[in-house]
């Protein structure tokens, strides 16, 4: 879907729904997922329609994912870190018990 321009950057590894993904240091979670071919980040609470990032600057809230157990995080506003656990956001969030 996307390729990386040939600039030297450090890499990190994180988990996306059980698969290990590689990303570059400084990537947002949204960039890291797109770089790994993920386009659909969430499904909507109203109808369950699939959605992916639109604005990538924090406005549209289309890129919501679950990060380290916390639902509805804006993937474009969170920096990807080594060891992060990322999952798609399915519909309305739940309140952790």
């Amino acid at each position: 879907m996307f390729r990386r321009l040939p600039d030297p950057t450090g890499t990190i590894a994180f988990d996306f729904e059980g698969t290990t993904f590689e990303a570059c240091e400084g990537d947002s979670v949204a960039a890291a997922l797109l770089a790994n071919g993920v386009l659909g980040f969430r499904t909507t609470p109203a109808s369950g329609a699939p959605r992916g990032p639109w604005c990538l600057i924090g406005n549209c809230h289309e890129c919501l994912v679950e990060i380290d157990g916390e639902p509805n995080r804006q993937a474009c506003m969170v920096e990807a870190r080594a060891g992060m656990q990322v999952r798609r956001q399915h519909g309305a969030r739940v309140i952790p018990r």
Partner: peptide, 11 residues
């Protein structure tokens, strides 16, 4: 923004 932030280009 993806290009600026992460050097990502559609392929």
């Amino acid at each position: 923004s993806l290009l600026k932030g992460a050097g990502l280009v559609p392929d």
